[in-house]
Simulated assay, not measured.
Amino acid sequence: MEGLSSFHNLQALSALLSTQGDDDEDDCKNMKSSALMSPGDIHAPPSVANKTGTTAYAKADSKAIWCEEEVIEGSQFDDLTDTRPQPEYDIVLKQSVGTEDIFLGMSGKDPSSMCCDSMLVKIKMPGTKASDVVLDVKDKFLDLRTPNYKLGLHLPHPVHSQEGKAHFYSERQELEVTLPMNRLMDQINLQ
Rank of each mutant, 00 (worst) to 15 (best):
S47N: 13
M114A: 14
L142N: 00
D139F: 02
D101K: 02
P46Y: 03
P87E: 04
F103M: 12
T99F: 07
G53I: 05
E70D: 14
Y89W: 13
K140Y: 00
K109F: 10
C115F: 13
T83S: 12
L80W: 06
S47W: 11
K124L: 11
D79G: 01
S131F: 03
Y57F: 15
A44V: 06
V121C: 07
E73K: 12
V137S: 01
M119Q: 11
M119N: 02
D139L: 04
F103P: 00
D79S: 10
A35Y: 08
P45H: 08
I65P: 00
L142E: 00
H43M: 09
D139E: 15
C116W: 01
I72F: 03
N50M: 11
T99Q: 08
Q76G: 01
D110L: 04
G53Q: 08
V137A: 07
S107M: 04
A130I: 02
S113E: 13
L142K: 00
K140S: 03
S112K: 09
V97M: 12
P126T: 05
K122R: 15
T55D: 14
K129R: 12
S118K: 11
P111D: 08
V71L: 11
G40M: 06
V48S: 14
G74E: 02
E70Q: 15
Y57K: 08
K94T: 10
R145I: 07
M106S: 14
K29P: 00
G74Y: 01
H43D: 14
P85Y: 05
M31H: 05
T83N: 11
L144I: 05
P39F: 09
G74H: 03
Y89N: 07
T99N: 11
K129P: 00
F77W: 15
G74R: 01
L36S: 08
T99C: 06
E100L: 10
K32T: 12
D139H: 05
L104Q: 13
S38L: 10
D136N: 14
S75D: 11
Q95M: 15
E100H: 10
E88R: 13
A60L: 14
D101S: 07
S96T: 15
N50A: 09
S112H: 07
I72L: 10
C28K: 10
D139K: 12
M106L: 15
G40C: 04
D117E: 08
D78C: 03
A64C: 05
G108R: 05
Y89L: 02
K29S: 06
D110E: 13
Q95V: 03
D61F: 08
A64G: 06
E88N: 13
K124R: 14
K29Q: 09
G40K: 08
M37W: 10
S118F: 03
T81K: 13
A58I: 13
E70V: 03
K29N: 07
V134L: 09
L80F: 11
S118V: 02
K32S: 15
S107V: 01
K29A: 08
K122S: 15
D101P: 01
